[in-house]
Amino acid sequence: MSIADLAHHSMWRPATLPELLTRLAERHAKTQSTILLAGGTDWVVEQELSPPHSDPAKLPLLADISRLEELRGIELTGSTLRIGAAATYLEMRRHPHIGQGDKRAALLARMAQDLGALQIQARGTLGGNLATGSPAADGVAALMAYDTTVVLQSTRGERKVPITAYQTGYKRSVREGDEVITAFEIDLPARYSWYWRKVGTRRAQSISKVALAAVAVVDSGKLTRVGLGMASVAPVTAPLQNTRTLLLSTPIADLTRDSLAAAVRSDCAPIDDVRSTREYREHCARVVVHDFCRQLGAPV
């Protein structure tokens, strides 16, 4: 599809989630393609860059889910923060538990501040960030640091998937064609440290060369919970499992530069592309993990 095809699509705005799920299931059963359109900040750009569709009659249906109430709220219940998949980054920055007020999920607001610019933050959503499947997704890195649960719904019911199990390869995931990402659930620790570092060509609008989101709970000099998410160093957002294992098994005071560097190297598989090189990304991945650990008090 190209931008020339854009106006020839059909748009449908479901009024309720059940209405969306029912039609999505019907279309999926007939192998008809449906685009779930939230902010459009990736999808519309992709149309701009693509060649015209060979058969305009087979254009997918655009389901505008950007205003679907069931996908929009942000609520804290006990220690669980539930963020609707179509809540925007700007809504998160304004929210009394994220960017304002008690800032219990401050990492999300800090990440959102570096994502695009206000125009993108006013439209972009975490659900879209995950569904698009770019390994450079800043939002997904932050969700991974919180070990977020992804909530999926279809007419078959609801299922919950850990964020680290959601992506199965480059732009591939466990989501079936009749499923919708409806929300994210984050178990917020009562006390924790967080870290965010994005490396890009400039502060606004840049797609990450490397980004690290981290969440850590420290007790008596040891990490009792750690979550990491790194963007742009692998075909999917990298959870840095070996680095997590090292951090959970070693007192902070005993962490070394070399052991961390070896763990990070084993967790990443960056490539050369238009934005950066494999070598520079490996360097940045190491540097940001060292920086995070230094801020936790590690002698690195």
Binding site: L6, M11, L37, G39, G40, T41, V44, V45, L62, D64, L118, Q119, I120, A122, R123
Partner: peptide, 8 residues
């Protein structure tokens, strides 16, 4: 503020 080129 939004980019009118990305909003349908």
């Amino acid at each position: 503020p939004v980019n009118a080129c990305l909003v349908l």
